[in-house]
Amino acid sequence: MLYHWWNQYWSKALLVAAFVSLAWFLRQTNGALLQEVFYGITQPLRLNTAPPAEQLSDARTLELQERLLELQAQNQQLQTTLGEVNEAEAGSIPAPIIGRAANQWWQHVIIGRGKGDGIKVGSPVQAAGGVVGYVIQVTTHTSKVLLISDPRSSVGAMLTRTRTQGYVRGTATDQLEMRFFEKDLTVTPGDVVVTSSSSTLFAPGQPIGIIQSVDQQASPVPVARVKLNAPISKLEWVTVYPAKAVKIENQAEAVEDATAPSALVGS
């Protein structure tokens, strides 16, 4: 019986087995091969190969940028005094977005720069407006970036005004959900959210968004809605920064920093 079946269908059975194992291989390698093929095919279709020039939308943006430059300069001065070196600015790589997630639920993008350009897993990714995500997979020419708006992503964050620590989680929209570590807060809508000093991925103080609403009654900790600065669904170019490379042994140190943020700021 089986012998007859095999005689009749052996070629088809082998073919199906080959296809299944090929698909399994692609799945186990997270589609790295497909991503490379996609990169190769779409390469001639990408006409603008240079990142767009800095765009200024209005006077308000200009004002804020100037204020930011001033604050950055001040910040740098303070950090030099404290003996901290800001390494985040060096070695940034502009990268075009060439693809998006192949389903409706996960929020990641594929960018056209990879291992060959020096991108590593864990590299933070930013765009005009602030943080957009971090690299979760690299191939030779492409990388996969988990967007900050993906529900699986959680990034340490804090409020600039009160230095309250928390973390933001995506909700697959242009709003994030921010949870705080403390119970009683003076959070108000309009507060600016930046990356936390205890973040393992991002340099501290990178802009994320603005608080839109706060639910103080939420259990066990207050929850806030954060409007993202970056236009997350309309991104075309992003900037990849070198991975922060927090070693496991450094974590204890970083944790100390995180537990006493007010003391740090006060000093």
Partner: peptide, 8 residues
């Protein structure tokens, strides 16, 4: 890395 900031 501890990927994703949740661990720290």
């Amino acid at each position: 890395f501890s990927l994703g900031d949740s661990l720290l």
